[in-house]
Write a protein that binds this DNA or RNA. Sequence first.
DNA 1: TGCACGATGAAC
DNA 2: TTCATCGTGCAC
Length: 201
Amino acid sequence: MKTLAIKNSQPAISAPARLGPLPRSFYDRPAIVVAEELLGKVLVHVRDGKRQVGRIVEVEAYLGPHDLAAHSARGLTERTKVMFGPPGHAYVYLIYGIHNCVNMVTESEGTASAVLLRALEPLEGIEGRTQGPGLLCKAMGIDRRLNGHDLLSDDLFVAALPEPPRIAIARRPRIGVDYARHWARRLLRFYIKGNPWISKP
DNA sequence: TGCACGATGAAC
DNA sequence: TTCATCGTGCAC
């Protein structure tokens, strides 16, 4: 499978000057609902006074301890405790000893569901590729120091664009969870249909 | 205390 | 298709 080479594209939409975090009630809903509604919204990270904004174009929902593909399926551990915590926080973990992945914790405390961000469309202040959960974190400067970070803060949050474009949502099986038996086949990966910035078609 | 392996990405 | 690379979870 060849990857589509996209060089220096200008963003089709630009980020407005003022962006503020979504309320906690946005995250306090089922992971599938939050996953679909995160599409088209923007992730904002402010570090050293510099703002980075990327449009969320691809996500995966992890439903909780009953979902065999979710980290929380192993129960409450030191690593997964953020997932078991209240909604609206970032769950950042290291995968394969190399890459960071960032999730938004959803539903009430104890539910242990979350939404993994898989790809962004760069809108402002982003250098490097954002097609894939590891690359996305690298380009956005997100690592485990931000694990447990409140998404209602002013330096890492998700915001809605004032005039969100209409989107069509595609549903596919999640990536890299073949070990999760029937859960591997559930259509819990969501992306904006036709968007060139997704990690895998 | 040791060990198998993973919600990946890049090279070969 | 293979491999880099290491924290986590669990077996022992």
